[in-house]
Design a protein around this nucleic acid. Structure first.
Ligand SMILES: NC(=O)c1ccc[n+]([C@@H]2O[C@H](COP(=O)([O-])OP(=O)(O)OC[C@H]3O[C@@H](n4cnc5c(N)ncnc54)[C@H](O)[C@@H]3O)[C@@H](O)[C@H]2O)c1
Ligand SMILES: NC(=O)c1ccc[n+]([C@@H]2O[C@H](COP(=O)([O-])OP(=O)(O)OC[C@H]3O[C@@H](n4cnc5c(N)ncnc54)[C@H](O)[C@@H]3O)[C@@H](O)[C@H]2O)c1
Lengths: 252, 252
DNA sequence: AGGCGCTTGTGAAGGCGTGCACAAATCGCG
DNA sequence: CGCGATTTGTGCACGCCTTCACAAGCGCCT
């Protein structure tokens, strides 16, 4: 059983960083993960009427350290003006280009149960560069149902439709037991990026990227911190003055 | 990562005791994030009838490197037997204890729209140590609705109910514009852990942990890799080999 | 009892990411 | 036209995390 993890740094001794031949300077993975956050903050600022923004201001809006933000952006090139800041519109274009959002990507969703319905009805995709073009399920009673203007198709059609619609990203919202099988179907159909909501590890060939979202893991991490905090507050002193309310305000 | 860092240990040099009186050795953040994955894998193995498991086997099931797994577990203490492996049941108990899952934690959910309904109906919470004890919304037309045996209450009741039910974790599934206000209400009610699904940065006092789940960010990260992969296959040769060809930056 | 194979636990090395601190660059104004 | 205020871009040091490699420990078989 070789479960391949996405991304590079698989083993190590192998061919090494395959990503170095791209048209981009290799961006650190940590930077890539923050770019979408900067982009969202920039859109907010733009809608608020800002033409330019300083690294300090943008960092605050994105919830990061300003030095980190500057270093992240410097990896994309020099799009700031010293003494002034960054041009909001220009930076938006640049980040969208790097993230490949200038071309609206086609997404398919597999598994239209509880979660799948919510995702299908989510308007946050379209506004962020994605378009759900197909829905699939294995349950005959679900096939044919219309959701948000799309008809649920049987998963057997996935191979054909994926090619027709040029689907690059697949979202899995099936039970864990079916997730690997669905992933295999997606990979066979040529899908090279998968977002997995099922709580399980997927095994995919190298070259296919998998990202996982697991609610229970998030809650358990919070639980750990609760546990730790509880063991701390066992000390005297009790709660400090928190009844007053929030003190922090989002700057600018 | 989220904007809020919990890490204290301002100085460093914890030559042993340090000021923290907690019952735990300080676990690295990265380790904590992986423990839930190990736990899930262990439950699967246990249900499959395994009594013990080697680091190699568990690592494969959890999708990580075996050395990393051993180091992670070594932080909890020595619960393995050399030449044999780890006792599945014992390790489950141990991890659950560390994560604070032995006490079922009360969770409340705010915002019962599209996503909130799916979350409320999700049975993966109960099976992983959590119990949704209350639902809140601000929309009068939603208040009173029964979902999975719970009645949706008005958010103004949150303060009272949170204390009554001893709620430690709040989940925000409202639009981004309302998220900060909801977070403030949760904090005032004594909730010290928040899971935020709204695409925005939350500002909370120190001592409160926030974790964020943002679908669009996940998709955008995948999009970047798609973009990168596409620019690779655009090159002549096509093969994955990193033949000749040096990197070249996009002209600016 | 002793040897042998297997697995854990860990020391050490290297890579990655973060944040400080500051020089370089640009604008606005007198 | 030059000067000061401001902000970017980055060299550098430090700490965290990952990974390798191996000695120590354990059980089983002869
Ligand atoms: N509901 C939530 O809030 C939530 C939250 C976090 C994670 N999840 C995870 O998301 C997944 C889906 O959750 P859910 O609550 O929507 O479950 P669900 O049972 O309501 O829906 C699952 C859907 O997948 C379909 N399906 C099953 N096998 C399939 C296959 N082989 N091919 C195609 N479709 C198939 C089913 O017909 C059903 O429509 C689960 O893995 C769950 O653990 C759900
Ligand atoms: N639907 C999805 O699949 C999805 C996916 C990812 C992220 N999100 C995010 O999750 C959030 C909710 O998404 P949704 O699709 O469920 O939206 P929605 O509009 O369907 O539901 C929002 C709910 O929050 C309630 N609400 C609004 N203001 C409130 C307040 N101040 N206090 C309490 N309740 C309040 C509304 O009455 C409504 O019921 C959004 O921020 C969205 O961006 C949704």
């Amino acid at each position: 059983m070789s479960q391949q993890r996405h991304g590079n740094t698989p083993g190590n001794a192998d061919g090494g960083r395959a990503g170095s031949v791209t048209a981009f300077p290799d961006l650190p993975e940590a930077t890539i993960a923050r770019l979408p956050e900067y982009l969202r903050a920039l859109h907010n600022l733009g809608e608020a009427g800002a033409d330019t923004v300083s690294s300090e201001g943008l960092a605050a809006a994105a919830g990061v350290n300003s030095a980190k933000l500057r270093k992240d952006l410097s990896h994309l090139g020099s799009y700031g003006t010293r003494g002034v800041g960054y041009d909001v519109a220009l930076l938006i274009d640049q980040i969208e280009y790097v993230l490949g959002l200038d071309q609206r990507r086609a997404v398919c969703l597999v598994g239209l149960g509880n979660l799948g319905h919510a995702l299908a009805g989510y308007d946050g995709f379209a506004s962020r560069g994605f378009k759900i073009v197909a829905l699939f399920d294995a349950d005959p009673s679900k096939v044919g149902e219309e959701i948000q203007g799309l008809i649920v198709r049987h998963i057997e059609e996935l191979g054909r439709v994926a090619v027709e619609e040029n689907i690059a990203i697949g979202v899995i919202a099936t039970p864990a037991g079916a997730a690997q099988a669905v992933a295999d179907v997606l990979v066979d159909a040529g899908v090279t990026s998968i977002l997995n909501f099922a709580p399980c590890v997927l095994s995919v060939p190298s070259g296919v990227d998998v990202r996982k979202v697991d609610l229970a893991i998030e809650l358990q991490i919070l639980s750990f911190h609760e546990h730790r905090k509880a063991s701390l507050t066992a000390l005297p002193g009790g709660r400090s003055a928190t009844a007053a309310g929030n003190q922090e305000a989002v700057g600018s």
